[in-house]
Design a protein around this nucleic acid. Structure first.
Length: 445
RNA sequence: CGGGGCGUAGCGCAGUCUGGUAGCGCGACGGUUUUGGGUACCGUAGGUCGUGAGUUCGAAUCUCGCCGCCCCGACCA
């Protein structure tokens, strides 16, 4: 993409509405604009990252054997009356009436709807296990939205629902989700710690939240620092294997890690002191097993291998997709701007032309631009007629992990400069070598 | 919802106390200059001062209502 043909409205100054760093940077980097309290438009740069995150979620869900669907944002109140949550959910649920005065609501979550789909179409244990998920906009009418997309009222969420014949099978689904979530966050460059949590309005006993450590987090967490050393890395996981999933879950849930809601000072104090940590953290996902809480009242039953009608065991699982942008920026930025991890960056690399209008630099940039596209690494090419300083400042702000600087000085020696946003380190090399290096870096992402 | 604050040009702000018809910086646009970290100078455009009513010869400024936004708290992916 050429910057002169793109839509990237960056701000030099901090908008007064934004308090925390991720919110400020998302506004300044031209990613989002607020339309109402807790409701945002996504501009091209923000949308690109949002789509990257969605793509990673989809890919990891597919590996775990989960099936994508898409349910509407508006739901009939009748479904929620069946589960009893229409009354229970409270003011946070946005209620709407259509022209026939029928009660609708903008879905804050979809347990009822997915259960309705299930009960109308699945009758036999032979169709289990089944896990359906979607990535869809939700609305929760927070009393006080804040922190930009981290605590918006409208938010994009991956929500998934597993249907299993019994508790053992459903626990495997729970474990499978934990493993796939760990992989998902890792690919986004995040360290997300699974922590025993409280279940809230979804219900159920078995639940973990995934938390990213950050000073601006809304949760207070306590953990054994040993958990930070755990990595899934390139490990190939057989998601059908109960033993393997259970083993990974055991490994990740053995070190102490809890939110303040479930924190136990006594158990915590048994950890060696140097590993005893507390911090603020951002919740970026949660998984639940809640058994037959919805299937029983809503009649989601299947016939088992004995010919008996039994309610299915269910769980649900969420990833805060739009919130993740904020969480990633909170975890990865400096005083100049955002630093995107390679896995989610809107563009893999930026090209800075230091002398726009110069035949040699323009030509070198064009060639580099086309070569990178041909390699599947679409660059953001700053082809504006502007000062070097202004171009560098924009690149630093929007946070592309790599930058290639092309100027007459280097070109005279046949060299360009490859700069790492995270470390600030630069290296002069031929354009071919820079392309080869980038191809190598992005092979993993 | 309780407490606090704010609403003036795209962004950041001054002007409000003490009424006289709107200004600064950045940005945008045009030029000259400059050219490896937001260059300098000249010029141009852009505002029904959130909104409605009232007071007044006259309201960004005073009064009342309404709307919106931000911060702290309780609540939440």
């Amino acid at each position: 993409m050429r910057l002169t043909r793109y839509f990237l409205p960056v701000l030099k100054e901090n908008p007064s509405e934004a308090q925390i760093v991720s919110h400020r940077l998302m506004l300044r980097a031209g990613m989002i604009r607020q339309q109402a309290a807790g409701i945002y438009s996504w501009l091209p740069m923000g949308l690109r990252v949002l789509r990257r995150i969605e793509q990673i979620v989809h890919e990891e869900q597919a590996k775990a054997g989960h099936i994508p669907v898409l349910m509407p944002t508006l739901q009939s109140a009748d479904l929620w009356r069946e589960s009893g949550r229409y009354e229970d959910y409270g003011e946070e649920m946005l209620r709407i009436k259509d022209r026939h005065k029928r009660d609708l609501l903008y879905g804050p979550t979809n347990e009822e709807m997915i259960t309705d789909i299930f009960r109308g179409n699945v009758n036999s244990y032979k169709d289990l296990p089944l896990t359906l998920y979607q990535i869809q906009w939700k609305f929760r009418d927070e009393i006080r939205p804040r922190f930009g997309v981290m605590r918006g009222r409208e938010f994009l969420m991956k929500d998934g629902y597993n249907f299993d014949i019994d508790k053992d099978a459903a626990i495997h689904a729970y474990n499978r989700h934990m493993v796939s979530y760990l992989r998902t966050y890792e690919r986004m460059g995040l360290t997300a710690i699974p922590m025993r949590a409280a279940s809230g309005p979804i219900g159920g006993d078995n639940t973990h939240e995934f938390l990213v450590l950050a000073e601006t987090g809304e949760s207070e967490v306590f953990y054994d620092s040993a958990i930070l050393d755990l990595k899934l890395g390139d490990r190939v996981v057989d998601f059908d294997s109960r033993e393997e999933c259970e083993g990974i879950v055991r490994e990740w849930t053995s070190p102490y890690a809890r939110t303040d809601e479930t924190h136990d000072e006594g158990v915590f104090n048994e950890i060696p002191e140097e590993r005893r940590k507390s911090s603020r953290a951002i919740e970026v996902g949660q998984i639940f097993y809640f058994g037959t809480k919805y299937s029983e009242p809503m009649g989601a039953v299947v016939v088992n291998d004995q010919g008996e009608r039994v309610p299915v065991h269910m769980g649900s699982h969420g990833i805060g997709v739009s919130r993740l942008l904020g969480a990633i920026i909170e975890a990865s930025h400096d005083d100049k701007g955002i630093i995107w991890p390679e896995g989610v960056t809107p563009f893999p690399v930026g090209i800075v032309n230091l002398k726009q209008g110069d035949i040699a630099t323009d030509g070198a940039c064009e060639a580099l631009y086309n070569t990178l596209i041909a390699k599947g690494l679409e660059p953001l090419y700053d082809d504006r007629d502007d000062r070097a300083g202004a171009k560098f400042a924009t690149m630093d702000l929007i946070g592309l992990p790599w930058r290639i600087t092309v100027g007459p000085r280097g070109l005279a020696k046949g060299l360009v400069e490859l700069t790492c946003r995270r470390t600030g380190e630069s290296e002069e090399m031929s354009a071919e070598a820079a392309v080869a290096r980038l191809v190598q870096i992005y092979e993993k992402h």
